[in-house]
Each structure stands twice: as C-alpha cells, then as structure tokens.
Computed example of a mutant assay.
Amino acid sequence: MSINRVIISGNLTRDPELRSTQSGMAVLSFGVAVNDRCKNQQTGEWEDRPNFVDCTMFGNRANSVAQYLSKGTKVSIEGKLRWEQWERDGQKHSKLKVIVDELEFMSSRQSGASAPQGHYHTAQPMSHYPAAPQAAYGAQPPLPAYGQPQAYGAPANTAAAVPAIDASSSVYDDDIPF
C-alpha cells in the first residue's frame, strides 16, 4: 500500500497560467513558495529556505479560481504528487509537481481584493461554491446550524448558547494550568 497526499501552504510565485486542452478542459498552472526552517551550522541562526512547488488544477474549478489568484496570494493546497519526464534538445528532464485536489484562500497581498469563501475541491460540483466573491481573503464562512458549538453536556440536537470569546483578550503562559 502507498499513500500519495501532500498539503502545502505558501504564496504564489507568479501569476497563474490558464490554458485549455484540445478537448476543452481548463488547466491552471501556478507555483507556490513554501519555506523550510533550518539552523545554519556556521552562525547558529535559524534561516528560512524557500522551496518552489509547481501546481496544476484541472476542470471548471480552474476557470473559477484563476480570476482570484495572482502573484503573492497565500493559499493552502491539498493534492497528490505527480512525476513528469520529458526530453528537450536531447536532454532528459524531470520534476515532481502537485495535482491540486483542494485549494483554500488564506490571504492576499492586495488590500481590498475579494475571493470566494471557503475552498475548492473535486468532491463537490462547482454549483456548491459561491457564484461571486462574498468576503475578503481570509474571512471565515459562517458555520452551518449542525456545526454550531454546543454547551458542555447539552443534548446534541438542541442549540445551546455559547458565550462569545473576546478577541481582544490575550492568553499568557501564566494563565495555563499545566
């Protein structure tokens, strides 16, 4: 048995390229930069080392997502690795790339830019996704009624009031009992 799943989060390294196959299927290609932290043995300092990952998305969702992606956009991607080989000018080349199954918009470097809420994946038809942008990058979609938090001990089928968390309050290590 083998497992071929990859999850990455990073920024687009270039504007995406949208093209079509001869059969008319949309193909969206883009690159994502993912940092890796490692300690420099000479200086003892931690350094970020970038990894550049080529990604490809297929089908109707490639058309829909292309309009919201641009260089610098932060995304989270889940997909599978695919090995490609080709020959050019007598030289053999190869690379690993990610075939995107799910894409979630994390943020944008462009203030005021809009993107659809949530994420895009192959398990749902495109009608499942919003037709037009509804919130800024990074905004969280509302939870459905069945996903609302329940008070401790409340029956699962009863909506219980849960106190709101004050986002301005902060938690310090001294407040944690362990």
Rank of each mutant, 00 (worst) to 15 (best):
M1C: 05
M1H: 05
S2I: 04
I7C: 03
G10F: 07
D15V: 03
P16K: 00
E17N: 11
S23K: 13
S23Y: 13
G24A: 11
V27E: 04
V27R: 02
F30D: 07
G31M: 08
G31L: 07
A33V: 07
N35Y: 01
Q41D: 14
Q42C: 07
Q42E: 11
T43Y: 08
E45G: 10
W46L: 12
W46D: 12
R49Q: 15
D54C: 02
F58W: 10
N60D: 10
A62D: 02
A62M: 07
L69W: 01
L69K: 05
S70W: 03
S70I: 02
K74I: 03
K74R: 11
K74A: 07
V75Y: 00
S76P: 01
E78W: 04
R82Y: 02
R82C: 00
W83Q: 14
W83L: 15
Q85N: 14
W86E: 09
R88D: 10
G90M: 08
Q91H: 14
Q91C: 14
V98E: 04
I99W: 04
D101S: 08
G112M: 07
S114L: 12
P116S: 01
P116A: 01
P116I: 00
G118S: 00
H121K: 05
P130I: 03
P130W: 01
P130T: 05
A132Q: 13
A136E: 00
L143G: 09
L143R: 13
P144N: 10
G147L: 15
G147H: 13
Q148P: 03
P149F: 02
P149Q: 07
G153I: 14
T158Q: 15
A159T: 15
A159K: 15
V162C: 05
A164I: 05
A164R: 08
D166P: 12
A167R: 11
S169Y: 11
S169Q: 14
S169W: 10
D173F: 15
D174T: 10
D174E: 11
D175Y: 09
F178V: 10
